[in-house]
Design a protein around this nucleic acid. Structure first.
Lengths: 205, 205
DNA sequence: TGTACATCAGTGAACGCGCGTTCACTGATGTAC
DNA sequence: TGTACATCAGTGAACGCGCGTTCACTGATGTAC
């Protein structure tokens, strides 16, 4: 580790990463600015050279999370193409995969209580993530006969909700609420049933 | 208000109610034992006559929430009988209704980070609530041909997850994440599509 | 009915703690000439 | 290449605050006789 004289070199990012680790370990409640500073090997006061304060640091962690999240969703979408169905399923799976792989980011984004409208950049990148899923839903909705076609944003919301619920209830090691099934399977099968309900996949697939 | 001499009369319950109001207003993070005591018109130290501490107070709020929740689920189930389908749908709706009507309890139960295994009573009443929904799912699963029948606890989990997701993402006024649809409609239609996917309701109902 | 006394639910002062934040400062870095 | 100087990223001490918790206490209540 060559970087550590008086000047840190990349303190801003080091602080974000320390924050993510702490948030992951202790929840958004347990996270403190002072401890993040300590973990980055720096005085609490130094944080204020890079962030406006505690909230601002969490917001940046969330923002970075949304960037990763949106990229992941986009990647999943692209990989499923040209099949609308494959793209849709892939984005659903990507949601859970993200929650698993980046728990600190996930908590900062969805459980820390920071508003997505806190800054324009945050709102933008969050909208981008949402946009990918909505586009996947829209592609898919074209395969439904127009007269019985529900709004695409509605079933994008359904899948989003089910994914989020699976993560919160069964994928987080919330003590005691043992998952009856692997979350991945639960989500996969849930989406399967749902798509069958939309008439988009066969009853015996 | 005749009750307020030196002795409060019903401080224990007053503290729980103060806690619920604070939790609802400020989230589990913002809740403090001292403020709950103040709001009940009492010294912080008095709390220790009735609870072991801060955590214990939250746990009691959660416990009372689970009692109400389980009762509500049971009531919904009974009301749907003898139709397995009606019972199942009703319990799903009851979930959202509970979250709306008792936000403080809901947060204490699902967002405060207290473990459901904290005490045996808490675990018991939580199991009772879960049991109602699982029973509804089981009743319903008998209408599915055995060879293609998924485990009942699985689609109970699906509905639980979707309900929870809808509440967290769209029913809470998490600033900025405006709901595209009324949460009730979203959940209703989501469950509808899901049940169609299970082959339990017609494609044009 | 009246008195003595045990029980219990509250008080209020005090504690140590770690928090977020501020401030004047200082040491390192980079640039101009 | 060397020196002067501006810029900037850090220090460290201090702050006020409210928190959860403890303790010896006291006032009210209920019970025995």
């Amino acid at each position: 580790m060559p970087k550590r004289g008086y000047h840190h070199g990349n303190l801003r990012q080091a602080l974000v990463e320390a924050a993510l680790k702490l948030i992951e370990a202790k929840g958004p409640t347990g996270f403190t600015l002072s401890e993040a500073a300590k973990q980055a090997g720096v005085t609490p006061a130094a944080v204020y050279r890079h962030f406006e304060g505690r909230e601002d640091l969490i917001a940046e962690a969330a923002r970075q999370g949304y960037v990763i999240f949106a990229d992941l969703m986009q990647y999943a979408y692209d990989k499923g193409q040209p099949s609308a169905l494959a793209s849709f399923e892939a984005t659903g799976r990507a949601y859970l995969a993200f929650a698993r792989k980046y728990p600190g980011h996930y908590i900062a984004m969805f459980e820390s209580g920071i508003s997505v409208n806190r800054t324009p950049e945050l709102a933008d990148v969050a909208a981008r993530a949402r946009g990918v899923m909505e586009r996947a839903a829209e592609d898919l909705s074209r395969h439904i006969p127009p007269e019985k076609r529900p709004p695409a944003s509605m079933f994008s919301a359904h899948i989003w909700a089910m994914s989020h619920g699976v993560v919160e209830l069964f994928a987080r090691n919330s003590p005691g609420t043992q998952s009856p099934f692997p979350p991945e399977d639960l989500l996969e099968s849930g989406i399967g049933v749902y798509l069958r309900g939309l008439g988009l996949i066969d009853s015996d697939s």
